[in-house]
Design a protein around this nucleic acid. Sequence first.
DNA 1: ATCGGTCATGTAAAGGTTTACATACTGCTG
DNA 2: CAGCAGTATGTAAACCTTTACATGACCGAT
Lengths: 340, 340
Amino acid sequence: MSTATPATIEDVARLAEVSIATVSRAIHTPDKVAKSTRQRVNQAIAITGYTTNAMARSLRMGRSNMILVLAPDIGDPNFSPILIGIENEARAHGYGVLIGHTQNDPERGLDYLKFLNSNQAAGLVLFTGHEPFGHQELSQRLPPTVAVFEPVFGARVSYVGVDDTAGARKAAEYLLASGHRSIAFIGDSRTKLGHVRRRKGYDLALDAARIAPDRRIVIEGEGSVESGRLAVEQLFMRDTLPSAFMCVNDATAIGVINGLAARGYDLPRDFSVIGFDDVAQATYLHPPLTTVRQPRSAIGRQAMALLLKQLTEPGEGTQEILIMPDLIVRGSVTSAMRSR
Amino acid sequence: MSTATPATIEDVARLAEVSIATVSRAIHTPDKVAKSTRQRVNQAIAITGYTTNAMARSLRMGRSNMILVLAPDIGDPNFSPILIGIENEARAHGYGVLIGHTQNDPERGLDYLKFLNSNQAAGLVLFTGHEPFGHQELSQRLPPTVAVFEPVFGARVSYVGVDDTAGARKAAEYLLASGHRSIAFIGDSRTKLGHVRRRKGYDLALDAARIAPDRRIVIEGEGSVESGRLAVEQLFMRDTLPSAFMCVNDATAIGVINGLAARGYDLPRDFSVIGFDDVAQATYLHPPLTTVRQPRSAIGRQAMALLLKQLTEPGEGTQEILIMPDLIVRGSVTSAMRSR
DNA sequence: ATCGGTCATGTAAAGGTTTACATACTGCTG
DNA sequence: CAGCAGTATGTAAACCTTTACATGACCGAT
C-alpha cells in the first residue's frame, strides 16, 4: 500500500499476473486488452496506488505533457487572470501547467531553458515581451511557443493579445468626445512594442480629430507607477499642462493620479485620466479609473488553444490573434468644459 | 552544432574519445579524471552545446533539483515577494523553482501530486494554508515540505511565517495608544489559523488595557476586499459603531475603507483603520494605510533555507520559525479624541 | 488437415543518465 | 622481480516507461 517508494508498473504487473506491456496497454490503449485482463489490471492499480512515473514516460516518449509558462514578474496583476485562462484550456486537453519566474534575469532564463531542453515541457508560453534567454543559438530547439499579452520583440513567435491600437484609439476617442483637446500620452514608444501600438491608436484618433501633431504632448515613461508620477513632475516643469492624461497602462495612471493628488489637485474635477488594462485595483482608486479592459482570460484561453494546435500540427506558420477590448467607463474622466 | 535533437552525453564522449562514464565524471567529480582528459571533455561539451538531460538524470538518481511551490492564487500580492526570497535562496544552492497554481481545486492539486510522485521535485513549499490534495493517503510519500505565510491546518509540516499574534498585538496596542477604546476586529477566527492567531493578539492587547470582552466587537469575514465591505454594512445594521477597525489583513482593510467612503465618511477623520500585510497597494490608498508589514522576502529565504536543511538531513523533526513584523505607520489611524 | 488471419499477450530494446565494479597501467617496496 | 597500492578509465546495470516485433491460440475457409 503505502510503502516508502512508489509502486512501479512492475508491481502492478506482478499483482495482476500479466507483463508490464499489458499494464501499459491497459492504461493507454484499453481496447487492445481483453476485458477480464483489463479489470484485473485496474484492480491491481487501485490496490498499489500506482501512478505512472511522468518522468520515465517523458524520457521514453521524448515529450511531456506539461506546458511551461514563463513570466518575468508573477506579481503583475495581469498575469494571474491570463494564467487561469491558460490553465483551464490546458487542463481540458490533458496538459498540466508549470510557471517559471525569470525576474528578467538571463541566468534564470537559462535554468528554464535547460528544463525545456530535457523535454520536460511540451510547449512554452511567454509572458515576457522578449526572449528570456541570453544565448539565442540555443533557442533554435525551443518547443512550440506562443507569446501572450506582449508580443515578442523581433522574433517569429505566435502571439495572442489585445488589439492595442484599436483599444487605445477607443480611449483617445472617448477623451476627445468628452471635449478634451489637450491630451498627453505617457508611455514607452521606443522599446516596447505594445506601447508603440497604443501610441499609434492615440495618434490615429487625434489625427482623425484634426489635432495637429505639434499640439500633442508625449512623455516617455516605462510603464510603472513611478513613471506616471515622474511624468506629472516633468509636465509641471515644462509648464504645459494637458487637460487629460492618456496612460499607456493602469500602473502609469495610478502614478499620475498620485502625482496630481500630491500637488493638491482634485480629480476628476481638475484633470481627466484614462488608463489601459483594467487591473483589479482600478475600481478602488479615487476616482475609480476609466480604462480599457484587457480580455485577460480570453487571451489565456486562446493562447493555449493556439499552442495546442501547434503541438498537434507542427506546420511552421506563426500566427497573431488580436482581441478587441472594451472601454470601461468609471469616474476618472469628465467633460473638458468644466475644467480649464 | 544546432541539430534538431539536443546533444547527449554519448555525442560528447565520442568527440572527446572517452567513455560516457568519464564524461559524467568530468562533470560531477572533476578530480577523479586526469587533467588532460578533463580538458578534452570540456572542449567537446562546448562544441556540442551539451546540456545534461535533467529528466534522465533525475530518473536515475531518484531525485531532482527542482523545488515545487504550490499556491492557490498566484495573484495574491503577498506571494510574489515571498517567491523571490525562495528563489534567491534556492538558486544559491543549485536548485530551480517551479510554481504550481492550484486555484484551490483538488483536481489540480492531484496533478501536481503526480508531478511529485515522479520525483520531478525534490522539495515542496506550500502557500496554501492546507494540504492541497484530496486524497490524504497519498500524502505520505510527499517530499520534504515547508509551509509559508499560512500554517497548514492540522498537519505536521514545518512552517515559516510572521509572528501573527505579536504583530496583531502591536497593531492593537497602537490603536489603544491613539486613544481608541472601541475597536472592531474583522477576520475569520473559525477556520483560518493565521486569523485565529491575529485575533489572539488583538485579545491580548485589549486584555492588557482592561477592556472588557463584552465591549469588543468581532465580525466574521473571510479576508477578502468584499468581506471588509460587508463587515461595515453589518456594523451599520447593528448600529454599534467602533471608532477604529482592526482588519485581519489589508484586503479586508481596503474593503472597510471603501465601505466607509461609500457611505460618505471622511477618513481618517471619522474612523481609523489598520491592516495587516502591507501590500504594495497600501501606500496608494486614501488614506495611506497604517499596517503591519509582512517580512516577505525574509520568510521566503528562511523557508527555503529550512527546506534545504531538511533535504540534506532527513531528520524527521518539523520546525516552526516565526518572524517578528514591524508596524508601518501611515495615515489611516488618528487620535480617537477628534472623532466621537 | 492446412493455411491465413485476428486477437491477446509477452519479450526486449530504447530513451539519457549515474555509479558499482572490473580492468589496465604506473611506480613503489621488499 | 614479484607483489601491491593507487590512479585513470571502461563496462554494464539500473532507473521506469512505451512500443515494435515475436509468439501462440483460436477460428473459419480452403
